[in-house]
Design a protein around this nucleic acid. Structure first.
Length: 510
RNA sequence: GGUCCGUUCGUCUAGUCAGGUCAGGACGCCAGGUUUUCAUCCUGGUAACAGGGGUUCGAAUCCCCUACGGACUACCA
C-alpha cells in the first residue's frame, strides 16, 4: 500500500437530505478509518451550483453527529488539507485541468448542449451501439482537436463557452482491482471523453474527486457501486496527472434496494412505502413538506446504525448486536457483500427493541417525562422508574410508553366491553367487595403478599381464578392487558387500587 | 440499445477465495410453553443454493451458457 496512514473520506453533495444509503457509506468509511487508526474526512462536493440545497450541509453534519460518527477532519471540523468544500477549491482544479491540456490529455470542447444532443440522436438513429463523445466521434465535433489552433484561440479570446474534456486513448484496456468486487477490465473504446471542467467554471465530480483524493492523501475510496463504471476514467486521471503510484484502493459497496420490487432505494420511496429513508427529519424549504427521519420516528442512533451496518456487511459470525467499538474491531472491507440489499422495517424495529431493553432507565425516564409534561400529567405521587421498568420489555420505541402506562396516571373511565361480557358475572361485585376488605386489612402492600392473599381467598371460596383476576384487572386498568396486576397495584398504592376497584363495582354494568 | 456488475430461506445473511457434515444464524410467519390477561420471553417448526450444461469420486463453492435483477450510459453527483 502506497499510503502510510489510512485516510478515507465521505464526500456527499449537498443536494438535499442525506439518505440512508449515504449514511451507510459514511458508516463504512468511519468504521474502516477507526479500525486502522486512520482519519475520517468529510468533504462536501458542491460543484453543481444548480442542485445546491441550502441547509443540506448542516443536515449532513447533524446526521453524523447523531450517529456519533463525526469526522476527524473536514467541513465543520477543519484540518490541514483544506478547504474541504469543493466550491472553495476552484483554482486548484483549474490548474490541473490546464495541466492536462498542455500535456495532451485533455482538450477544449465548444459544443452546445443541442449540438451534443444532435450527435447522440444521429448516432442512435444510425444504430450505433455507442453514442458517446469519444475517440471516434470527437473528430466531428467542435473542439481543440478538430479545430485549428487559431480558431480555438479565437473562440477562447471571444469568451465562447467551453468545457474541458478528458482525451481517452483509442484502444486501451484499463484495469483495476476493487477490494469488494474484484478485478475489472474496461476498454477505452467503450468509455467517453468525460467532461472534467464545466462551462460555468466548476469542475465535474470526476476531476474534483481525483484531485482532492490525491491532495488529501486519501488511501481508500469507499463509495457506492454506482461509481464503478466511472472508475476507469478516474484511473486514467491519476495516470495522466502523474499520480499512478498513489492510486487509492477502491472499494465499491453494493446499493440499498427498495424493500418492494427492485431498484435503487430513492428518496421518494419513503413517502410511497411509509417508512423513513432519512436519518433525521427534513423540512423542504420549497414545499415546507416534512420528510420523516429515523430519529424522530423513535429509533435510537445505536440501533439504527447497527441495523444499517448489517446491510451489505457481515462479520461472518452469528453476532448481531454490536457496540460501535465492537463494529470498529470487527469491520473489514473483505466482508462487504457484493449484491444489493433491501431493507426490512421489521428487523429495524427488532433492533430498536433490543437496544431499548439495554438503555439506562434514567434515559428512558428523561424522554418519558417530556411526554408527561406535554400531556399535563401530574406524576409526583408515582415512581416513574419502576413503572418504566415494568413495561419496557413491551416497548419497541420510547413513544410506546404512554400507550403502555397511561392507566397509571389516569384511572379508567371506561371498561373494555369484551372483557365485561366474558368475565363480569352476577357475583363479581360481591367478590371484588370481599377483595377490598381483604386488601384493606393488608399492611405489607407488596406484590407477593397481595398475590398470596388473593389467591388464597380464591381457593378457599372456590372461585374461578381467571374470572376474578380478569375482573380485578378490568377495574384497575380498564382492559385485559398489561403486566402483572399485583405489580400494578403496588405502584398505584393501596388507596388508589381500592378506590379503582370500588369505582369498577359502582360503574361496570353487564 | 451498449458497457459493467450481481443472483443462498419472504427479508438480512454464514458458507464460495483454499470443492467433501441433514446448507448454519437472525427478522418475519406458524405451533407449543410461561404469564390463569395482553405483550415480552423460552422451545420447536416453516422456508433457499435462479436454470441448464460441464470439470470432479464428490459442486452452493471451479468453468461455460441462459434467465432474471441492478448500476452506468448528463456541462448530476
Amino acid at each position: 500500500m502506497p499510503f502510510e496512514k489510512v485516510r478515507v473520506r465521505f464526500a456527499p453533495s449537498p443536494t438535499g437530505p442525506l439518505h440512508i444509503g449515504g449514511v451507510r457509506t459514511a458508516i463504512f468509511n468511519y468504521l474502516f478509518a477507526k479500525k486502522h487508526n486512520g482519519n475520517f474526512i468529510l468533504r462536501i462536493e458542491d460543484t453543481d451550483q444548480n442542485r445546491f440545497v441550502s441547509g443540506a450541509e448542516e443536515y449532513i453534519l447533524e446526521s453524523l453527529k447523531w450517529l456519533n460518527i463525526e469526522p476527524d477532519e473536514g467541513v465543520g471540523k477543519g484540518g490541514s488539507f483544506g478547504p474541504y468544500r469543493q466550491s472553495e477549491r476552484k483554482d486548484i482544479y483549474q490548474k490541473y485541468a490546464h495541466q492536462l491540456i498542455s500535456d495532451g490529455h485533455a482538450y477544449y470542447a465548444f459544443d452546445t448542449p443541442s449540438e451534443l444532443e444532435n450527435m447522440r440522436n444521429r448516432l442512435k438513429s444510425e444504430k450505433h451501439s455507442n453514442q458517446q463523445y469519444n475517440a471516434k466521434t470527437r473528430v466531428n465535433m467542435l473542439n481543440s482537436l478538430s479545430l485549428s489552433q487559431a480558431k480555438v484561440q479565437q473562440k477562447l479570446d471571444n469568451n465562447d463557452p467551453y468545457v474541458i474534456r478528458l482525451m481517452l486513448p483509442e484502444n486501451k484496456e484499463i484495469k483495476f482491482q476493487d477490494a469488494v468486487l474484484g478485478d475489472f477490465v474496461f476498454h477505452s473504446s467503450q468509455l467517453d471523453d468525460k467532461i472534467l471542467f464545466k462551462s460555468d467554471g466548476m469542475p465535474t465530480y470526476h476531476l474534483a474527486n481525483v484531485v482532492d483524493d490525491h491532495l488529501m492523501e486519501i488511501s481508500h475510496v469507499i463509495r457506492g457501486s454506482e461509481w464503478t463504471n466511472s472508475t476507469p476514467c478516474h484511473i486514467l486521471l491519476y495516470r495522466y496527472l502523474g499520480w499512478e503510484k498513489e492510486i487509492p484502493v477502491f472499494a465499491h459497496m453494493p446499493l440499498l434496494l427498495k424493500p418492494d420490487g427492485q431498484g435503487k432505494l430513492s428518496k421518494r420511496d419513503g413517502d410511497r412505502l411509509g417508512f423513513p429513508v432519512f436519518p433525521l427529519n427534513w423540512k423542504s424549504q420549497e414545499t415546507s413538506e416534512i420528510s420523516k427521519g429515523y430519529k424522530e420516528s423513535g429509533y435510537s442512533s445505536e440501533a439504527f446504525l447497527n441495523f444499517l451496518v448489517l446491510l451489505g456487511w457481515n462479520p461472518g459470525t452469528d453476532q448481531e448486536i454490536f457496540s460501535l467499538t465492537e463494529l470498529i474491531n470487527s469491520f473489514s472491507i473483505e466482508q462487504i457483500g457484493k449484491s444489493g440489499s433491501k431493507f426490512d422495517l421489521d428487523k429495524a424495529k427488532w433492533f430498536n427493541h433490543q437496544y431499548l431493553q439495554k438503555k439506562p432507565i434514567s434515559e428512558l425516564r428523561e424522554e418519558f417525562l417530556v411526554t408527561l409534561i406535554e400531556k399535563g400529567i401530574n406524576h409526583s405521587h408515582l415512581n416513574i422508574d419502576k413503572i418504566l421498568e415494568l413495561v419496557r420489555e413491551r416497548a419497541t420505541f420510547t413513544s410506546d410508553f404512554w400507550e403502555l402506562t397511561n392507566y397509571f396516571f389516569i384511572a379508567p373511565t371506561s371498561y373494555d366491553s369484551k372483557v365485561i361480557k366474558k368475565r363480569w358475572k352476577e357475583n363479581t361485585p360481591k367478590i371484588l367487595t370481599d377483595i377490598i376488605v381483604i386488601l384493606s386489612a393488608l399492611n405489607n402492600f407488596q406484590a407477593y403478599e397481595i398475590e398470596t392473599i388473593i389467591k388464597q381467598h380464591i381457593n378457599t371460596q372456590n372461585l374461578n381464578m381467571g374470572q376474578v383476576l380478569s375482573s380485578l384487572r378490568l377495574t384497575i386498568v380498564g382492559s385485559a392487558s398489561g403486566p402483572s396486576i399485583f405489580d400494578i397495584m403496588v405502584l398505584l398504592s393501596k388507596e388508589e387500587s381500592i378506590m379503582r376497584i370500588q369505582n369498577g363495582i359502582n360503574n361496570i354494568k353487564k
